[in-house]
Write a protein that binds this DNA or RNA. Structure first.
Lengths: 247, 247
DNA sequence: TAACTGGGTTTCATATAGTGAAACATCATA
DNA sequence: TATGATGTTTCACTATATGAAACCCAGTTA
């Protein structure tokens, strides 16, 4: 009846439970139950399974649930030599020291973009999304990079599924995409936030596939368009080097 | 009949699939199936569920499975400000630069101890377990710290469940535990490996609860007992500072 | 002390939902 | 073209996850 069930419900529910910890470190069973919209007893059983394997743990003091250290361990296994967020950190810091601006790393995850690592600007002014934050794909330099260099099929899907805010010129965005692909980098000025600008370049793996977007961001008065275009080769080179470091 | 089934089999299986990636970045479906000892089709369905939520991904080139970036994101949620492994890294590097030896971070996970982060010694000689490695609890400085500062109930459980190798003096271990608790740090000389020594101190959270063990390890001829005792205050102070950084 | 509230845990009848054998598809290599 | 790896889908069977309700246990409150 339904569209093919090639997936396991109980597992998806358990994963949803883990995902619902975004924003909160500690949650009580009933809080979780209401977040994922399941009955207490079901959540309890799923949590027991997660806890048994170390994916969630309970705060001994408050008895609340929190994510477990097994996730930490696994995330270190994402890349051959360890957590990419750690591997690339030194390079990111070098770039930060060179440019003085905030350096961020974004990956595409499903239909969203998430910020997975960042080193802060040495300047006082720094207003950026926290690590782990999810963002829509239609604004910002890193978005353009992630969409422009995505696999064709995924790109289609991304463009189709985006709920474009009224008044946003989708045609212009597509144009920018091809420009990004051609130039090898993207810029944005006051797209997401007034007064903020960013340059981004793709990090590609051995096979030329997109892994992440490396972005330099700062206030628009420091990061003018000319400035950013001048920095672009430097950033692209850093991104290239990072790609080789991932394996 | 069986002992109470307060856990969900499908979920445990799915988690086992993720866990079986330890040591390997990329795995093929059949490799996974044999590792977890399940039939291809079952693994396939579980993997589909995991993939749908971004917990595993497939290398577009090789079509092999690997862990997904959602884990990265979630591990960043373990602590308020982000991945503890990343947060503490700078401090660990500072300590490494100061002492020149390998610095490791261990946490208790279930009944085992796992190594979650490390910065390598600047010296040539460095033979240490990889990040993510699991170790038994009855040897090593970090073990003593993790057991000595564990919650009383967990401590009981740990001591009871450990399968002590014949000839190991359990009484002596208990004595060392109380000494560790008193002194605030532990040492070990040639316990796990001949020629290796280590000092470890607990990292406690705001409420004084144990979070991890910070360990300095190196060859026993450099890290003599006197040397380690001299370094202990420094290490304890570093551990204390790290505790305050976690939230 | 009793009645209440809010958490977590356990039980149990029910049928839903996950299972694995086997068949199928796909792409190598021989 | 055969052969032997993969990954994918189907399908009949019943083992297995489900949620309502009952239960427990600590704090409140009256």
């Amino acid at each position: 009846m339904e569209d093919s069930k090639l997936t396991v419900r109980a597992v998806e529910r358990a994963l949803d439970i883990m995902l619902c910890f975004t924003g909160a470190t500690e949650l009580t069973l009933t809080e979780i139950a209401s977040r994922v919209e399941l009955h207490k007893s079901t959540v309890h059983r799923l949590l027991a399974s997660l806890e048994g394997k170390g994916f969630v743990m309970r705060d001994a003091a408050t008895d609340k649930y929190r994510l477990g250290y097994r996730l930490w361990e696994l995330s270190a296994n994402l890349s051959k030599e360890g957590d990419p967020g750690i591997i690339l950190l030194p390079e990111m810091e070098r770039l930060r020291d060179l440019l003085g601006e905030t350096i961020s790393l974004y990956v595409q995850d499903g239909l969203e973009r998430i910020r997975i690592q960042a080193v802060q600007s040495t300047h006082a002014i720094r207003r950026v999304a926290p690590v782990g934050a999810r963002m829509p794909l239609y604004v910002g330099a890193s978005s353009k990079v992630l969409v422009a260099f995505a696999e064709p099929s995924l790109q289609q899907q991304l463009l189709a599924s985006a709920d474009w805010p009224a008044g946003l010129d989708q045609q212009a965005f597509l144009l920018q995409l091809s420009e990004t692909k051609r130039a090898g980098f993207a810029t944005s000025v006051e797209e997401r936030e007034p007064g903020a600008a960013a340059v981004a370049a793709p990090i590609l793996d051995h096979g030329g596939r997109l892994v992440a977007a490396l972005a330099v961001s700062g206030p628009a008065n420091r990061l003018t368009l000319e400035e950013m275009q001048a920095q672009a080769p430097l950033i692209m080179e850093a991104a290239r080097r990072m790609g080789t470091m991932l394996r």
